[in-house]
Simulated assay, not measured.
Amino acid sequence: MDIRHATNPTDFKHYTTERIRNEYLIDSLFEPGEIHMVYSHYDRVVTGGAVPINDGLTLEDKNTLKTNYFLERREIGIINIGSKGKVLVDGQEYKLNKRDCLYVGLGKEEVVLYSEDQSNPARFYFVSTLAHKEYPTKILPIEEAEPNHLGSESESNKRIIYKYIHENGIQSCQLMMGMTMFEPNNIWNTMPAHLHDRRMEVYLYFDMDEDARVFHFMGEPQETRHIVMKNEQAVLSPPWSIHSGAGTNSYTFIWAMSGENYTFTDMDGVKMDDLR
């Protein structure tokens, strides 16, 4: 497990490109036959990726979490961004096609990830947060998720937002998770920008061409910086930071939030005049 500590926005003003990438960029999540995870001290969020090949991959890291099993004090959201796969939760099987979401609540002792076709494996992306109450394990195929059509061609941000884990969807303690898909020739996400000082966020960018890039903007509104990101990379967004991006092509991203408030609309808008 890679450990990332919280950072101060005053110090962030002096970071080099290399330092920004080391602190916030999550690279190489999806390696065949392996699980990779990052533990952030922002709201104790764990972000990870798994690509099962020959055998199932068990979700565990007792040395970092200091618990008997991964979900002893946690909940998790899992979205498959690859080919067909399945997840065994204490022996119960849940099949996930591409873009389907599975929520697993507090107290489940064994979570094992499998691919249906070893030559064309599943690619499981997951985000885990602390939990205080058990909610039922639940699967939500993308076909059953409510699409929200937002943006316009004139603003280059015409997109569809699918909300999976939220107050009016799959119930959780504090984890919120969903996916945003862009229409062709639309590139801007989360602009106008916003902040939510009561919770952090993490983005995973995927479904990108090999040479495509997303310029992800972060930092305080008056002190913005950027990270250049490629396919299947994730980025941590502190509560004090904007989180917006523009791509060289259309792309898809998964957003996940954790913190004090459990309301999708809990955000403070940033005026365009305030961006620097």
Rank of each mutant, 00 (worst) to 15 (best):
90 D>L: 07
209 D>V: 05
131 A>I: 04
28 S>I: 00
143 E>H: 07
65 L>D: 06
72 E>Q: 13
227 I>A: 09
189 N>M: 11
130 L>W: 00
191 M>H: 06
83 S>Y: 12
14 H>C: 02
212 A>M: 05
107 G>P: 02
54 N>R: 11
159 R>P: 07
117 D>W: 09
261 N>I: 10
263 T>Q: 00
152 S>G: 02
119 S>R: 10
151 G>A: 05
118 Q>T: 12
273 D>Q: 12
228 V>F: 00
273 D>F: 05
87 V>S: 07
160 I>F: 02
91 G>I: 09
120 N>P: 01
14 H>I: 08
97 N>G: 11
143 E>C: 04
234 A>P: 01
214 V>F: 05
274 D>Q: 06
139 I>K: 15
177 M>T: 01
124 F>N: 12
200 M>P: 00
232 E>I: 08
105 G>Y: 10
46 V>C: 08
143 E>Y: 08
18 E>W: 00
203 Y>Q: 05
115 S>T: 14
50 A>M: 14
38 V>W: 12
54 N>V: 10
51 V>A: 09
49 G>V: 11
186 N>M: 01
53 I>D: 02
274 D>A: 15
43 D>Y: 11
211 D>W: 04
186 N>A: 08
249 N>H: 14
6 A>H: 01
252 T>V: 11
236 L>F: 11
62 K>N: 02
95 K>M: 10
17 T>F: 00
124 F>P: 08
92 Q>T: 14
251 Y>V: 06
105 G>Q: 11
149 H>R: 08
196 H>W: 00
262 Y>T: 07
74 R>H: 07
204 L>P: 02
267 M>I: 02
180 T>W: 04
186 N>C: 03
167 E>F: 03
85 G>M: 09
215 F>P: 00
60 E>D: 14
36 H>M: 04
43 D>S: 07
35 I>S: 14
41 H>A: 13
24 Y>N: 05
72 E>I: 01
69 Y>K: 03
195 L>E: 02
167 E>R: 02
102 L>W: 14
177 M>W: 04
127 V>D: 05
266 D>R: 00
136 P>I: 04
4 R>H: 04
263 T>E: 07
258 S>L: 06
276 R>C: 12
155 E>Q: 15
169 G>M: 15
246 A>K: 13
274 D>Y: 11
103 Y>H: 10
58 T>Q: 15
232 E>P: 06
3 I>R: 09
271 K>D: 14
236 L>N: 08
59 L>W: 13
170 I>H: 03
225 R>P: 00
45 V>D: 02
89 V>P: 08
256 A>F: 01
132 H>D: 11
271 K>L: 13
118 Q>L: 12
218 M>V: 05
69 Y>W: 03
85 G>H: 09
